[in-house]
Simulated scan of single mutants.
Amino acid sequence: MSHSTMPVQNQAFAIRTRAPAGRNPALGRLLLVAASIVSLVVLALQSVDAFALLPIGFHSWRPLLFAYLLWSAALGAAQILIRGEAGERAAFVLPAVLFTVAMVIFPTFFGLYIAFTDWNLSAVEGRRFNGLDNLRTLLADAYFWNALLNMAYYVLAVLVQYAIAFGLALLLNAEIKARKFFRVAFLLPLMLSPVAVSWMIGKSLMEYRFGPAATLARYLGWDNPAFFSTPWLARLSIMVMDAWVSIPFMMVLLLAGLQALPAEIKEAARVDGATGWQSFKEITFPLMLPVSMTALILRIIFELKLADIVINVTAGGPGGATDTVSSFIFREYRDRSNVGYGTMLAEVYLVIIIVFVALILKWASRWMQRTN
């Protein structure tokens, strides 16, 4: 190789290795490390003050908030300095990620801290760390386990809701008169707030003295039509109101799935002489399995949050027969002002929901693979 070509190659190598305009990786890393160190120091000081290990004088979590905002800005600037154009693209997504961390991740971990404290708003002592006392109280709390058992009943009722919703979807997908009117009419409960439904139906329609449902029950021979007097009847009444509000949601999903099915397959089955039941069993239902599983899983997730109807109609009674975990946690906060124990209930229930939904998704995936 001649000496004349070496400077040209060195210049080409320098051009390839030179950082593009606007990039300064060293400065970006330095900025990110400095902001991270400041944030970690503030977090350590805030934790020491929160656990009363050393009175620093932080009266709120505002210093940590400012440190987080500073670190977020440094992270965005560091991405641009280190990665250049790719960092600029990442900076568009970064605010959403940081907002999720601030509004979801941090409150979850902060709630975990609150769960291990004795914090009653009606007490003069204020918040103090009490270790595993709240967890021990939860494990021995019969009302919590009763509410969790009630949730099992409510979740199982989703299967009945699914069957009714599927039947309505099949009906509205058929060529019937006034089909558009019935579609709007069946969607009306979905447009109402569950709180409004609880007052219109639970407090008015099913009122045991003057309610129309109670009057009709007396006319049919029921001497004391109190829909919320016995545990099993109260739980069934809550299930009926919840189903009336929730069935249209699954019906819409299933109706959309039915309308997306290819008409040629049904025509071929009809030409081959298949009856309506055979066509549904062998063609419609198997093809609708993905939509069905989606509707069921979404409905179960919503059911696990059931609280508003129970709170407004029965307040968990009689004797906790209609209580859900969410309504029980609500009363723990509102009636007893027990923030520490209520937060422990919420954190444990969050873990239960995550595990339960993960198992359902795993089972549904395996079942779908086997059926396909």
Rank of each mutant, 00 (worst) to 15 (best):
A295V: 09
K177A: 13
V155W: 01
R299C: 04
W367Y: 12
L187A: 15
L306T: 06
A91G: 07
G126Q: 03
G276N: 09
A77H: 06
I56C: 07
F129E: 06
L40V: 12
G28N: 10
L216N: 01
I360Q: 10
V351T: 05
A102L: 12
I309Y: 02
P7I: 12
I297L: 15
T117R: 07
A226R: 12
V197P: 02
G28C: 09
V184Y: 05
T17Q: 13
A123C: 01
V124E: 09
L172E: 00
Y208W: 10
L54H: 13
L298F: 14
V197D: 01
V8L: 10
F249G: 04
N150K: 11
S337L: 15
A142G: 11
G126W: 00
L31N: 11
A147N: 05
T137I: 00
V101K: 02
D133R: 12
L205T: 08
S198L: 08
M206I: 03
V38H: 05
I329R: 03
V271I: 14
M206D: 08
S365R: 15
V339C: 06
K362Y: 12
S2K: 12
A274S: 09
A217R: 06
L148Q: 09
A165Q: 06
D242T: 05
E282R: 15
G28L: 07
M241D: 09
L135G: 05
S39Q: 13
L233A: 12
D242Y: 11
I176L: 08
W232A: 14
A321N: 10
S326Q: 11
S60L: 06
F285T: 07
L70R: 00
I354L: 15
L45I: 03
A315F: 04
A157W: 13
E303N: 14
G126Y: 00
L192Q: 07
L172C: 10
R179K: 15
E303P: 00
D49H: 06
A307T: 04
S39T: 13
P7V: 12
I82V: 15
F166H: 08
P262S: 12
